[in-house]
């Protein structure tokens, strides 16, 4: 028992170190060269010793981008682990509630109407705000449907989410075919990218990540209890409707911010929770915390690949997560089938 916890903390320590290492490396790489020493000087507060150009590159481009990738990767993985746990379904991922496609619809409408310019500050654009509004509207619709009959039922919530997703995807296609000019912009937005990360957006992202992920970490043990079914949960003093409501709401809000920030990035939320359970971390809270750091490492590495492979060009990070994540996942799956029983 104690030993098991010790193992968890060791694994967590490795993941945390890896996450910071990946972020530091990501800060060095890009279209112009910055050395690791310069990055470390910046992060340790010795900004005076840096050349002006290095300072600007690190502060305005590299740090926002690297941290955005890490926080989004981590949060998507946490959301994925919550969804898989609540729906008791290994194929669930952040998109199951339809919140991300609702968000995409919001952004598409804004792109169609030409609201892509900045609205608040230098970088909170119309697309960003529209994406959040889109996500909230879908969230209200899905939960409204799921609550009919007085209580949350995970499977009808899941189905409502799928139905809403297909409606929104249909509407997005409609917009793209109607307005051919917007098509490329919408398509790029839907693939996901960290290219336009700024420190303003990063601060919104970090504050939301701290709030919503903390709520998830605090209530995560209830995910395990809810797996036992409604009555057993009641007998252990856990109210299923309240717990599901809190966890799904926190996860949906976090997802809305993530999608508004950098578009729809697939695969992370599906795969990382499985990667974490391959390392024999099963309890919901430990799993969620571990997912955050493993997701951060994974996304940062994918982003490094996205900006380095075609240097000075870029590949959409969503494509990289699929290309790197898919084979790794298959490898783990095969290895796991031999070991697990």
């Amino acid at each position: 028992m104690r030993q098991h916890n010790l193992h968890f903390y060791l694994k967590l320590l490795v993941a945390v170190i890896a996450a910071f290492a990946a972020v530091a490396v990501s800060c060095c790489l890009g279209s112009s060269n910055v050395t690791l020493k310069e990055v470390l000087l910046y992060l340790s507060g010795n900004k005076d010793e840096l050349s002006k150009s290095a300072l600007i590159i690190i502060e305005k481009i590299r740090i926002p981008r690297a941290f955005t990738a890490a926080v989004i990767g981590g949060s998507l993985a946490v959301i994925g682990s919550v969804m898989q746990g609540l729906f008791k379904n290994p194929m669930a991922d952040p998109s199951v509630l339809g919140v991300s496609s609702g968000s995409a619809l919001g952004a598409s409408i804004s792109i169609m109407l030409g609201l892509s310019g900045p609205i608040i500050g230098g970088s909170i654009t119309g697309n960003y705000i529209a994406a959040i509004i889109g996500a909230l509207v879908t969230w209200i619709i899905v939960f409204g449907i799921a609550r009919i009959g007085g209580e949350f039922d995970p499977s009808s919530t899941l189905l409502a989410g799928i139905a809403i997703s297909s409606v929104t995807s249909g509407l997005i296609t409609l917009i793209m075919t109607h307005q051919k000019d917007s098509m490329e912009k919408i398509y790029m937005w839907m693939l996901g990218s960290f290219t336009f990360s700024t420190s303003d957006k990063l601060s919104v992202l970090i504050v939301s990540a701290i709030i919503f992920n903390s709520i998830i970490f605090i209530f995560a043990p209830r995910i395990d209890i809810l797996k036992l079914g409604k009555e057993t949960a009641t007998s252990l003093g856990v109210n299923m409707n309240v717990s599901l409501g809190i966890l799904m709401t926190a996860a949906s809000f976090m997802l809305a911010i993530c999608v508004a920030n950098s578009g729809i990035i697939g695969f992370v939320g599906l795969v990382i929770p499985h990667v974490v359970s391959f390392f024999r971390i099963n309890k919901a809270r430990q799993k969620a915390i571990m997912c955050f750091f493993v997701g951060a490492v994974f996304m940062t590495v994918c982003d490094i690949a996205a900006k380095s492979i075609l240097n000075p060009g870029e590949i959409a990070v969503g494509a990289i997560t699929d290309i790197i994540g898919g084979p790794y996942f298959l490898y783990l799956l095969l290895k796991n089938r031999r070991v697990r029983r």
């Binding site: 008791k88 797996k227 036992l228 079914g229 409604k230 009555e231 057993t232 009641t234 007998s235 003093g237």
Partner: peptide, 22 residues
């Protein structure tokens, strides 16, 4: 269980549905 459980009833259901993963 639904109506009278207030920490005083332990309950075992007939079956377990879905993946538990513990």
């Amino acid at each position: 269980v639904d109506k009278y459980a207030k920490g005083n009833i332990a309950y075992v259901a007939q079956e377990t549905l879905g993946i538990i993963n513990l």
